[in-house]
């Protein structure tokens, strides 16, 4: 029971859940904007990786976390515009374009990293003041010993970096933008019925480009968080499939912002537990193969897609380039 508690319910595990789900959340929200506007994006992974590299390189070169963030977001926006050009202007296949971006980012980050820093594709180790560090919220020390409430405040809510709070603040903000503003209504409309939006005199192309740029900004922050907040520098292939887990979370949440947060927390929790289960036997079940726990987010998403727990219906015009006239 002791072990069980230590692995599954510890504040430490839950804190790690928050940190591990942050990049997923940012990337999934990024995908939410893009896919709600009708541009499918399986290039989240590549944009995140490119941003992580740029952030690591920028922060190391200019000795500033903020410049790192700027570089990360800038590179992610460039990649997003590439995807936008291919899928909106050139009316190409959005899936193929996403695949291409993933490869280009995976290769370029290592090549450029090696040629600029000569550390086998890494960026130099960052010092504390070149990173976004965890900071304590007021009262974190005072309430440390109060059971539950104090533990949660100190271990879970406090002690995270700025980008974590940004990610979680984006959830209500995204909900508000999507469902309570004119921009959000139009964004959802171009994803469902672009012809109707066009008839109303709104440019489908402009709407989709805006969505793709927002997607770039958020994946940029996601990558930046990985490289200069969660870790102290870029490492080769550091996203390691997180972009695809974010995609899974987005589908799992059926393209809705608040549910996206819960899906990301769930997948982050599975990740945190998986790390702690390594080589630890659980009473009754015995040792759980960690590799199978790592596959759980994907399995859950497939089960959802199969329509056994609800039905995930993507935006209707998703993946279809808009042609004004034939």
């Amino acid at each position: 029971m002791e072990t069980f508690y230590r692995i599954f319910l510890n504040v430490d595990t839950l804190g790690s859940m928050v940190r591990l789900s942050t990049p997923l959340l940012l990337a999934a929200l990024a995908g939410l904007y893009s896919e709600r506007s009708g541009v499918f994006d399986i290039g989240l992974e590549g944009k995140m990786l490119g941003a992580a590299f740029a952030a690591g390189a920028g922060a190391a070169t200019f000795h500033s976390a903020w410049i790192g963030l700027l570089c990360g977001v800038g590179v992610a926006i460039c990649l997003a515009l590439m995807h936008g050009f291919a899928s909106i202007t050139a009316r190409g296949n959005q899936i193929v374009s996403g695949v291409a971006i993933n490869f280009i980012a995976a290769g370029l980050t290592v090549i450029l990293g090696q040629s600029w820093f000569n550390q086998g594709g890494r960026t130099p180790q960052l010092t504390a003041d070149e990173r976004f560090n965890a900071f304590k919220l007021p009262g974190a020390d005072a309430v440390r010993d109060i059971p539950i409430v104090g533990h949660v405040w100190t271990g879970l809510v406090s002690g995270n970096s700025l980008l974590v709070y940004f990610a979680f603040a984006m959830v209500p903000l995204t909900w508000w933008i999507l469902f309570r503003t004119r921009f959000g209504l139009r964004l959802r409309a171009v994803g469902e019925n672009p012809a109707a939006v066009d008839t109303a005199g709104i440019s489908v192309t402009a709407m989709r480009y805006r969505a793709v740029i927002i997607c770039g900004i958020l994946t940029g922050v996601a990558g930046t968080y990985l490289a200069i907040s969660l870790q102290a520098g870029f490492v080769k292939d550091m996203t390691a499939g997180k972009g695809f887990i974010a995609l899974a979370a987005l589908i799992f949440a059926k393209w809705r912002p608040v549910q996206v947060m819960f899906a990301c927390l769930l997948f982050g929790y599975l990740d945190a537990v998986g790390i702690r289960l390594q080589g630890v036997p659980i009473p009754v079940i015995g040792a759980v193969p960690v590799s199978l726990i790592q596959a759980l987010p994907y399995v859950l998403t497939v089960v959802l897609l199969a329509g056994f727990i609800g039905r995930a219906i993507p935006p209707r015009a998703g993946g279809v380039p808009y042609v004004k006239e034939r």
Binding site: A90, A100, F103, V110
Partner: peptide, 25 residues
Amino acid sequence: PNISRDMIVVIQGLVILFAGALEHM
């Protein structure tokens, strides 16, 4: 030494981009 085998991945990505996504260009 400046060009690791990751260059192949870049070329592969560019081929997919131009031959696939931008084939209508």
